[in-house]
Design a binder for these strands. Sequence first.
DNA 1: CGACCTTTTGAACGTATTCAACCGATGTGG
DNA 2: CCACATCGGTTGAATACGTTCAAAAGGTCG
Lengths: 250, 250
Amino acid sequence: MATRIDSANPVFSLETLKVACSTCGLRELCLPLGLSAAEIKRVDAIVRRRRKVRKTETLYHAGMTCRSLYAVRVGFLKTRDPESSGSCRIFGFHMAGELLGLDGIAGGVHTCEAIALEDSEVCEVTFEDLEVLGRELPALQKRFHQILSREIQRDHQIMRVLGCKTAEQRLAVFLLDLSERYESRGYSPASFHLRMSREEIGSYLGLQLETVSRLFSNFRKRGLIEVERRHLILTDRPALQRIANDSDLE
Amino acid sequence: MATRIDSANPVFSLETLKVACSTCGLRELCLPLGLSAAEIKRVDAIVRRRRKVRKTETLYHAGMTCRSLYAVRVGFLKTRDPESSGSCRIFGFHMAGELLGLDGIAGGVHTCEAIALEDSEVCEVTFEDLEVLGRELPALQKRFHQILSREIQRDHQIMRVLGCKTAEQRLAVFLLDLSERYESRGYSPASFHLRMSREEIGSYLGLQLETVSRLFSNFRKRGLIEVERRHLILTDRPALQRIANDSDLE
DNA sequence: CGACCTTTTGAACGTATTCAACCGATGTGG
DNA sequence: CCACATCGGTTGAATACGTTCAAAAGGTCG
């Protein structure tokens, strides 16, 4: 029933208004962060459409022309490298308020593909509109640059993890990162549901799914977490922090 | 003698004019790519200063307030993670025409440090100036976004390498990447000088220096390269390509 | 219910690391 | 000028970490 709205009707509906940036709970995480109410209204106007992506469905494929970026409104998606047949094809997991498609600006083509891990909704904004409006609203321009730069920082963090952390450290970093992101969205930082499989976690962390599974068991035995399938409780976050940080000192 | 010019004299000199963007050989790689002659002149005007960084000297430290980005004019620099005492602190090697400091836009603070691997010169542009001018010159704004997006793509490439390639594949990818970058700057893609130590290569690729050294020897024995200290000749690039690409198929 | 997918666990294996010795080039001071 | 220290690089041997292969249990869905 929900799909009826987004697929067919391009005019404003009550439904559309309800999810305007101005009233969106994510405006403190997403593109509008730091903008005035008036400015947010202008941003609202360039959001082309709010699109639903069902679990397992693809938001965009690699190779598709890319003229827009997408902000996750609700749900959870992954981006992955299409070519590499091997592992480590997953570049990231994306929660509400995060932006997708930043890698496509350079070439006008998506270099990875985005797939929903649960029923999700995204807001689409074209680069063109964003650039035009950015010229009028310096705060928006600045915010956009911040987001791009933030993404580079994030990638550096992942490179650090992949390049010099043990399997144990990688998983600890990963769990704490999820924890923080849930917390900043108002969810419990200690208890949450994993939207991704062991294989996907492994793919993201440069590990085999068996290794991930073993580490979950190992962390459970040491009393650091409780894990039941995909439900997770971080019972000893300070200890996880210690594991994650320990460069090499014992 | 060269330092006298840049350190003391803030007014335009013949020397300064000589290195203006308009006449810079790198304008087809750097920020001005795709701009008209008139637009390049405007970019010239916001280049605050052209700064020399001697070998082993630091262009910026992590934690320093960051209000500018730097374009490499001549030379070769590395950026590295300051905190991690372990390995893999090196995020990248940067050649002429490449931009440094993109990670600092978000927080206004440098998150890594840049160190010259040979005597280098960089052009400094403040984000503020770049944003202001970007509002006037859409082509510049677009170009800047392209560069940021390109950097994200680059990071993805590194994540791919670190996450799912063998040591052998990593080195092959690394050498071919250097090769391409030299070629696009008009140098030989097959014969060049390594500016970095084995340890720095390892740090970048998530390997130990011994492993890198062994791989060089191994590649030499297989007739793929000739290597004499830091001088390198890629004698069989197609073979290196095959090694780099082979996902897992034999 | 049976088919399939995800997850767990075990055992053997292999790749890259670690520790160590050594070499050559460079630089310093007696 | 040579002894000596230092730094970058090479190579060997033992080790360890994570992978690979394999089997089986638990969940989910037609």
